[in-house]
Amino acid sequence: MTYCVGMMLDRGLVLMSDTRTNAGVDNISTFRKMFTWEAPGERVLTVMTAGNLATTQALVSILDERTKAPEEREPSILSAPSMFQVARLVAGTLKDVISTHAETGQRADSAFNATVILGGQIRGAPPRLFLIYPEGNFIEAGEETPFFQIGETKYGRPILVRAYDRGMSFEEAVKLLLVSFDSTVKANLSVGLPFDLQVIGRDALGVTHQHRIQADDPYFLTISSGWGEALKAAMDSLPDFTF
């Protein structure tokens, strides 16, 4: 399983993914699920993936190969004129990969299913964030839906819904995401550290901050223990039920 979150802020984008993949409780591995392409000063594009590992690796490899091939052969995400067109390229490629492997064509419920979060910015336009489905369609984040989750979403979502603020700082957003990820890890063994963190500042047109958070990261340990203690304190402060 997977847990990835892409978040829109006034200041830009914050993206975080776990790295655990598993095919059973005794077959657990670590794979990167966050991939970035940059043309410094012109664009920055980041993809996070959830789903069948063979599908997501094929998707990323094809996208990467096309950035190195002559433009007349295949369209590239590094030359698409807008983030919308980048999303169309990623969505079309994902659909093609799934169609190639599925027994009877592209099927949303196929074992080769995968979902993608795409975020980034192209010069002259604002940062944008998309959620791309295996069927090849996608939606864009906006005022009413300012963040996307993929993978094991249910445990960390209540944290984001209650505490998200579009005007928060990057530092506050990272703290919020770590609480969300910690809650997910505590509830589901198929999600695990290390976490990949990336910040894309508005108009930076490149990655502003990038960091891998290991299991022994002092700040993460502080957040994990502090959140548990805060929940207990909040519970104790509420009035007891009476019969």
Rank of each mutant, 00 (worst) to 15 (best):
F84Y: 06
L129Y: 10
Q106Y: 05
G192E: 07
Q85L: 15
F130V: 00
T100G: 03
Q106T: 00
E152D: 03
R123Y: 04
N188T: 01
S76H: 05
D182P: 07
A187D: 01
R88A: 04
I62W: 11
A87D: 02
T115E: 08
E152N: 14
L160A: 07
H101P: 01
G151T: 02
V179H: 11
G124F: 11
S183W: 01
A187E: 01
N188H: 06
E144V: 08
K68M: 11
G92A: 11
D165I: 00
S82A: 13
S110F: 12
E152F: 08
S169N: 13
L193S: 03
T93G: 15
I159Q: 15
E103F: 15
A141P: 11
D96E: 12
P126K: 08
N113F: 08
G156N: 09
S82W: 13
E152H: 04
A108Y: 11
I98D: 01
I132K: 14
S99W: 05
D165L: 04
P127L: 10
S183F: 03
A108M: 03
T184S: 13
S61E: 12
V116S: 02
I62R: 09
P127S: 08
T67D: 05
R88E: 05
H101Y: 13
F138E: 00
V185K: 12
M168D: 00
R66C: 08
L94M: 06
E172T: 06
V191P: 04
H101N: 06
A108W: 07
L178F: 00
T104R: 15
V191Y: 07
T104G: 13
G156E: 01
E152L: 09
P70S: 13
A125V: 01
L129Q: 09
G92M: 12
M83R: 03
L131R: 13
V185M: 15
H101L: 10
N137G: 06
Q149V: 02
E135D: 05
Y164M: 10
E71H: 15
S76T: 04
V174R: 14
Y133R: 10
R162K: 14
D109Y: 01
N188M: 07
I139P: 10
K95D: 00
F181P: 03
P127R: 09
D182R: 15
F148T: 00
S169I: 09
S99F: 06
A114L: 08
A111N: 08
A108S: 06
F147K: 00
M168Y: 05
G105Q: 10
